[in-house]
């Protein structure tokens, strides 16, 4: 009984997050990052005369560098608070998870501190990526001939 009443009071005073505006913000932020990615690919192919695949790799490295630098400066967390999933779903989120883990455990030393904890968050992405790519690749290789 008391718990129920307590829960009601908590619900009343909880700040309501506006889901619609969150969705719009995530859409616009994610879209802008996609736009920057496409722009960088075009710029790299135009100025350095490399193939689209190589330009894509260069673009990803550029985005990772920007995300790591912003995380190091402490700006990225503020951006995530504002832009929500718009910053997490692009490759910047992957770089951010690695960089923030490494910074958090810096105090505990180079080996058991950030050496061991570096992949704490990014590890799940790599694990599920590799496992699913292997399983789905096997399916495609066996049933569709690669």
């Amino acid at each position: 009984m008391r718990d129920k009443k307590y829960q009601e009071i908590v619900d009343k005073h909880k700040p309501k997050e506006n889901r619609i505006s969150n969705m719009i913000i995530a859409f616009i932020v994610g879209g802008i990052i996609g736009l920057i990615g496409n722009l960088l690919v075009d710029l790299y192919t135009y100025f350095f005369h490399i193939s689209t695949t190589e330009a894509g790799v260069c673009m990803i490295v550029t985005l990772i560098f920007i995300a790591c630098l912003l995380t190091g400066l402490g700006v990225f967390d503020l951006l995530v608070k504002k832009g929500k999933m718009g910053f997490i779903i692009p490759i910047t989120g992957f770089a951010h998870s690695m960089q923030s883990a490494i910074l958090d455990y810096k105090k505990e030393g180079p080996v058991y501190g950030f050496g061991a904890n570096m992949f704490k968050l990014a590890g799940s992405v790599i694990l599920y990526g590799v496992v699913s790519a292997y399983v789905f690749g096997l399916i495609r290789y066996l049933f569709f001939g690669g």
Binding site: M23, F27, G30, G31, G34, L35, K84, M85, G86, I89
Partner: peptide, 13 residues
């Protein structure tokens, strides 16, 4: 690019 990337972030949100 804008629509595709934005759409994925929208779903995630």
């Amino acid at each position: 690019s804008f629509l595709f990337c934005g759409f994925l972030c929208l779903i995630a949100q």
